[in-house]
């Protein structure tokens, strides 16, 4: 027997249908860029008397390559964007004459090529060392348990570039490996750390693993979509500096 609905029942059915179909929760389909976040953390004590007036950037994006179980296959695809965008932001803060690129390979030119040719490149074991107030480092998180190892293979110990700061202190900066200051990040996060060298030098004893004064963590920038990674990396780093006005005096 064919069942038919009377008019009120049909209307009620339409009403219920509207509610059911409308009930899909908003945000079911989210563009990957909408999940990007920029988190900045700083120690306000370190900026109480003003920010550093010069900066150096380690010209290498550090990553923990010692593991075989990394969750992200990264081969430096956005190193250029990370370093050169950071460099541009540092020039805005400190001025082109007070920013230095720190390059650890005396036998080769900096790679990637610095975007601003006017920034002086300091080569380890080669150049005299100017005063540097803030040291910036960049790293990418390839494994959720990535900690600490940011710049493997760099000859921090036994002299080297850092040893030239003051005569009589052959290993003056040996205790400032630019390690990642916070230990848990999500895979695909790009981390910038800033160390206040004057503060670190003023501590006695000099800490083996000093805390950074500022951290910028750009979550989610490295995704499985390499085409969008570069643009999102640039905007993420720009946002990290934009929301940190205290970096500039």
């Amino acid at each position: 027997m064919k069942t038919t609905l009377n008019k009120p029942a049909k209307l009620l059915w339409v009403l219920v249908s509207i509610v059911v179909f409308q009930a899909c929760y908003p945000g079911d389909s989210i563009p990957i860029s909408d999940l990007d976040t920029v988190t900045t953390v700083y120690n306000s004590d370190d900026f109480a008397n003003g920010a550093p007036t010069s900066a150096g950037i380690i010209w290498q994006v550090a990553q923990d390559t010692s593991r075989t179980d990394n969750n992200l296959d990264y081969n430096g695809e956005v190193d250029d964007e990370i370093l050169n965008t950071t460099l541009e932001e540092l020039i805005k803060i400190y001025g082109v004459d007070s920013v230095y690129i720190i390059w650890g390979d005396p036998d080769n030119n900096p790679d990637p090529i610095p975007g601003n040719p006017n920034v002086k490149v300091l080569v380890e074991d080669g150049d005299p060392v100017p005063y540097i107030g803030a040291l910036y480092t960049a790293s990418v998180i390839l494994n959720e348990k990535t900690v600490g190892i940011v710049y493997p293979g760099y000859p921090w110990y036994g002299g080297g570039w850092w040893g030239g700061w003051y005569p009589g202190y052959p290993c003056y900066y040996c205790y400032y490996p630019p390690t990642v200051g916070y230990q848990k990040y999500e895979v695909g996060t790009i981390v910038l750390d800033m160390y206040d060298l004057a503060k670190i030098l003023g501590q006695n004893p000099i800490p083996d693993n000093p805390d950074p004064s500022w951290v910028g963590a750009m979550r989610g920038l490295l995704s499985s979509n390499p085409e969008s990674n570069a643009a999102r990396t640039v905007s993420g780093i720009q946002q990290a500096f934009a929301q940190s006005p205290y970096l500039k005096n």
Partner: peptide, 14 residues
């Protein structure tokens, strides 16, 4: 209290 943080990004509000 001296360690301060901020987060930015697209906000999905409900």
């Amino acid at each position: 209290a001296n360690i301060k943080g901020e987060i930015s990004g697209v906000q999905y509000r409900f």
